[in-house]
């Protein structure tokens, strides 16, 4: 049960990060290797902001939750307009370009923020004891064993991720912006032939994708710590999730994130984190062999 909860937190954060990656790939056909660095930047900015703002930690955190994704999103929009647009969104050249972006962001962070891992204080962090059920002398008994606990913050992370994911879904399915994005995803030229400014849509999608990664990082940073190399793991896991779920499929991405996050949590607790990674990567291999379009993907035209 504890493992499930830990896994859910991983799953929640992973789902947000991976949905950002999936959105960028789905609409723009750009494989964004620098996605993990946008994640890392979100965490670092959250650290800087919570440090700069005095008062109750919740105030700084709330500001970070809004400002960090916006800042990172703006940075991504600038990167899109100055780099990706000039490459004409060529699938291969953008991979190389985002690898370059990855190192630039990473090294700049190392030079300015330093090599230390620094914690951010959670806005609220009540310890919640979890009940345990066991058959005793009096039948089914419930008690609170020492050490079996979670924090209110972890539950809040899961809740926030669910709300955000519902928001993304609603945006894609119900709003005009979502309609424009999906039309662009379906056929870029025809989208232009119907008056959709595809380049603006691309810039926006890249910004939203990066913003989601940053948002996920702000949520996780009170549990992990902000570090300039922290982007590698979420990047790898996001790719695993996106491949399993089907490139460009949002529901598939979320389901795969839950699958990978939960199994990661459970296996890490009972066996070892390495085994969890091995299994996840094995799963990717199997999916690629037997269902190349992903579990929820539709075969591309």
């Amino acid at each position: 049960m504890l493992a499930t909860l830990e896994g859910s937190v991983t799953a929640a954060v992973l789902a947000l990060t991976a949905v950002g990656l999936s959105l960028v790939f789905g609409v723009m056909r750009v494989v964004n290797i620098a996605h993990g660095e946008f994640f890392m930047l979100g965490a670092v900015i959250a650290y800087v902001l919570t440090r700069a703002i005095s008062g109750h930690p919740a105030v700084g955190f709330a500001v970070a939750l809004v400002v960090a994704p916006v800042l990172v999103g703006v940075l991504a929009v600038v990167a899109d307009m100055t780099i990706l647009k000039r490459l004409d969104y060529d699938p291969e050249r953008t991979i190389v370009a985002t690898i370059g972006l990855l190192y630039i962001i990473q090294q700049l962070t190392l030079m300015s923020y330093g090599p230390d891992a620094r914690p951010v204080e959670a806005p609220f962090n009540t310890r919640l004891a979890l009940p345990w059920f066991e058959w005793g002398e009096n039948g089914l008994a419930m008690y609170w064993p020492w050490g079996l606990s979670t924090t209110s913050y972890k539950l809040a992370v899961i809740g926030a991720a669910v709300v955000l994911l519902c928001g993304i879904w609603a945006m894609m399915a119900r709003t005009r912006i979502g309609l424009v994005m999906r039309a662009t995803q379906a056929d870029r030229d025809m989208a232009q032939a119907f008056g959709i400014p595809v380049e603006k849509v691309y810039a926006m999608v890249f910004g939203i994708g990066a913003g989601l990664a940053a948002m996920a990082a702000v949520l996780i940073v009170p549990i992990q710590q902000a570090h300039y190399l922290m982007g590698a793991d979420p990047l790898l896991l996001s790719f695993i999730v996106v491949i399993i779920g089907g490139l460009g499929s949002l529901p598939g991405t979320v389901v795969a994130a839950i699958l990978i996050g939960l199994s990661d949590g459970i296996i890490s607790v009972f066996f070892s984190p390495t085994l969890a990674k091995i299994l996840a990567t094995l799963l990717v291999g199997l999916v690629l062999v037997f269902r190349p379009q992903g579990l929820f993907g539709t075969r591309g035209v």
């Binding site: 309609l179 424009v180 379906a186 025809m190 032939a193 119907f194 595809v198």
Partner: peptide
């Protein structure tokens, strides 16, 4: 993207509808 806004409708070869979108959503675009 400004060309169609001036009033040119394009019906391309092979239709090229927005796949994944419903009939209503295609018309909405």
């Amino acid at each position: 993207h400004e060309v169609p806004r001036r009033g040119i409708g394009y019906i391309p070869q092979g239709r090229r509808l927005f796949a994944g979108l419903t009939v209503a959503q295609n018309l909405e675009v």
